[in-house]
Simulated scan of single mutants.
Amino acid sequence: MTMRDTDRRGEHGRGSTDGEGAVEMLLQPQERDLGGFSVRRLLPSAKRTMVGPWIFFDHIGPADFPPGEGITVRPHPHINLATVTYLFEGEILHPDSLGSLQPIVPGDINLMVAGRGIVHSERERPEVTGTAHRLHGLQLWLALPEADEETEPAFHHYPGSDIPMCTVDGVPLRVMMGSAFGLTSPVRTFADTLYVEAHLKAGQCLALPEAPERALYVVSGALRLGGRPLPEHSMAILSPTASVAMEADSDSRVALIGGEPLGKRFIDWNFVSSRKERIDQARADWRAKRYPLVPGDEKEFIPLPD
C-alpha cells in the first residue's frame, strides 16, 4: 500500500497518563481514500509516530466491490522498512521486483522486507474481480533497525496454518509476530516485535503481555482498559509499565502491537529511514526510474508526489 506525501511526519512523544495508568493516549483514525476504497490510518499521526518498531498502521475497508472492480495499486517503491499484510476477508495478489507472485488470503501473513529497495504492486486475480467481493484487513509497516536498513530485499509468505494460536481464559488468539502467551511466531523479525490478534466475547477479559511500547487497536466491538472505554476503530497507546487487562463490552476483535523503540525515523511517501539524505536519494532514484521493474507489471507505476 502507499502513503500520501502529506502524511510525512509526526512527533514521537508521550501524552498524559490516564485510564488509571493504563492508557497514555487514545488515537482516532484518519480516513484516507486510496481510489475505490478507503482506509483508516492510525500511525503515523500528529500525536504519535511510532509504537516500538511499528511506524504505519492502516485498517483497510471493509470495502465491497462489484464484479469487474477491485484493488489496483500500481507499482511503487519502498526502502528501509518491512510491510506486514494480514486479511480478514478477501484476497490480494502480491507481485514484486524480486519476481514474487503470491495471493494472500485470510489468516496468512505476507512479510515484504524492502531493505535497500523493492518495488511491488497490489492487484487481484481475475477470478476474484470477476465476482462481487469484499476486502478487509490490516497493513502495517515496520521500521528496520539501522544495521538492517540496507539489507537485501526479501519476500516471505506464511500460511495461516503456520501462525501459532491458543486460547487464554476462554479468549482465542494468534501470535502473529514475536513471542507472547507462551507461543513464538515463525514470522521473521529484526527487532523485539509484538503483534497479537484476539477475539473476545462480551464480558471476557484478557491480560495483555508486556513490551517496552504497546498499542491496542479495536478492529471491531468495544473494550475497556483500566476503566477507560475504547470504542471501535480507536487505538490506545499503553503505558509500558502498567499490568493491564482488557475487558470486552461487546464481541470484539483486537490487534495488539508493540516492541522496542528504534529511535527517530523519517517518513516520506513510501520511504522510511533513519537518514533524511537516504530518503532524498530514494526519491531521486524513483524519479530517474533506477528501481527494478515488477515482472508482468512493467507498464504502470505511481509517479513520485511533488
Score class of each variant (00 low, 15 high):
29 P>Q: 12
110 N>S: 12
179 S>V: 06
47 K>R: 11
144 L>R: 07
92 I>D: 05
247 E>L: 07
198 A>V: 13
255 A>R: 08
234 S>A: 15
50 M>K: 04
198 A>R: 06
306 D>S: 13
41 R>C: 00
146 E>K: 15
239 S>M: 04
274 S>A: 09
143 A>I: 00
237 I>S: 03
104 I>A: 01
39 V>Y: 12
287 R>Q: 10
37 F>Q: 05
27 L>M: 09
126 P>F: 11
65 F>W: 07
78 H>Y: 09
26 L>N: 02
63 A>T: 13
199 H>D: 06
75 P>T: 03
184 T>G: 08
195 Y>N: 05
11 E>L: 11
110 N>I: 08
230 L>G: 07
174 R>H: 12
129 T>D: 09
81 L>I: 08
200 L>M: 14
232 E>D: 10
81 L>C: 12
203 G>N: 03
67 P>V: 10
257 I>Y: 04
98 L>C: 01
18 D>T: 09
119 V>N: 08
251 D>T: 11
78 H>A: 04
7 D>Q: 01
183 L>W: 06
11 E>C: 02
204 Q>W: 05
108 D>R: 10
163 I>L: 13
90 G>V: 02
145 P>D: 09
262 L>R: 02
288 A>E: 07
167 T>D: 07
176 M>G: 02
220 S>E: 10
78 H>M: 12
194 L>K: 12
99 G>W: 09
301 F>L: 14
222 A>F: 07
171 V>I: 12
174 R>N: 07
190 F>S: 05
189 T>N: 14
107 G>D: 10
5 D>F: 01
126 P>D: 13
165 M>Q: 11
106 P>E: 15
200 L>H: 11
220 S>R: 14
295 P>A: 03
269 W>D: 05
5 D>E: 02
